[in-house]
């Protein structure tokens, strides 16, 4: 049931997002192509976090680290004259996956708030590492001279880049959906609800959890590569702990353990930020209570509100 509904939502949502560039062109408002592209990139980051947070119950407070690694995997080759997108994005996926493998191998041994803090600690270390990379701009970060090159696919065209991001997002959601519904995903979810039982029926949750953590890291890295191209600029600030908090909030706002929810969460949060900050410099005094209210009263996020009172699967 969950799979069928997700496919439907994915189809309709993807179609709606696909209509943004022609609509923006018709209304002569090309800005919305940029805005929605940025939202989809954060949506990808949020969905990747949802894989481990929503399904695996692993509250990673350092997910922005992979965003940063992915961005640097684009920026550093570009700095040395390698503009090939396949190399850059491939490196982003591999490097952030490897980082997640190492971080996960150490962190998954802990649980609860210790897990939250140790993932945060690793992200902080990478943040300070980024600041000390003088060749690559240190704290200032560096400009990306040009977007990644993919032969005839020209990312400097806003609409083309938009569709590339959309296709990647939909693909990742489809793959993610298959992962969570697979035997592998079942083990992860079982480990979340009752780890000793999962172990008792013969699974070693550690390896499965670590694999999920690595996949999520890779997807986060890919989002980072996209973000570097979107901004044409990258800084260690991509890895700051408040970013990790924002991505986490996108997941919760949208509804965790749903994959689609975090996408909605990312879009709504960034839209709120854009609208509120245009209204008042004190927009955070509005955003803060909204955050608290969502946590207190809309426990299953916007997805829960929209989908009605269905029990959370998993």
């Amino acid at each position: 049931m969950a799979r069928g509904r997700r496919a439907l939502v994915l189809g309709v949502g993807g179609l709606a997002l696909a209509l943004v560039p022609p609509l923006a062109a018709a209304l002569n408002q090309p800005f919305y192509v940029d805005l929605f592209r940025r939202m989809m990139i954060f949506a990808l980051a949020a969905a990747s976090l949802d894989l481990i947070l929503g399904y695996g119950g692993m509250v990673s407070f350092g997910h922005a680290a992979y965003l940063g690694i992915g961005a640097y995997a684009v920026g550093i080759p570009a700095f040395h004259g390698v503009d090939n997108g396949f190399v850059q994005w491939g490196l982003a996926i591999v490097a952030s996956g490897l980082a997640a493998l190492v971080i996960g191998a150490i962190s998954i041994r802990t649980s609860g708030v210790y897990f939250i803090m140790i993932t945060l600690a690793f992200a902080q270390m990478l943040y300070y590492l980024g600041i000390s990379l003088e060749t690559y701009g240190g704290d200032n970060g560096m400009r990306l001279a040009r977007r990644s090159l993919f032969g005839p696919v020209d990312l400097t065209n806003p609409a083309v880049f938009y569709y590339v991001v959309l296709v990647i997002l939909v693909l990742c959601l489809v793959v993610g959906g298959h992962v969570v519904d697979s035997r592998f995903g079942m083990v992860i979810r079982a480990a979340r609800s009752n780890e000793p039982r999962a172990r008792a029926i013969g699974f070693s949750p550690f390896r499965y959890k670590l694999a999920a953590f690595t996949i999520a890291g890779s997807m986060g890295g890919l989002a980072g590569a996209l973000l570097a191209n979107q901004t044409e600029y990258l800084t260690p600030d991509f890895m700051h702990w408040t970013r990790s908090g924002e991505i986490m909030f996108m997941v919760i706002l949208g509804g965790m353990g749903t994959l689609i929810g975090p996408v909605v969460g990312a879009i709504v949060l960034l839209l709120l930020e854009d609208v509120l900050s245009a209204l008042t410099a004190h927009w955070q005094i509005v955003l803060g209570p909204i955050l608290i209210t969502v946590v207190l009263f809309a426990r299953r996020g916007l997805h829960g509100l929209l989908a009605g009172a269905r029990p959370r699967d998993g």
Binding site: L53, V59, F61, G112, V113, I116, G245, M248, F249, I252, M256, H282, Q284, I285, L287, G288, P289, I290, L291, I292, V295, L296, R299
Partner: peptide, 21 residues
């Protein structure tokens, strides 16, 4: 813990702006 982290993160935003005002 997740809900707690987020709700109290919201409180941080609120208090910082309140003090700023």
């Amino acid at each position: 813990h997740l809900d707690q982290v987020l709700a109290t993160f919201g409180l941080i935003l609120f208090f910082n702006e309140l003090i700023a005002i």
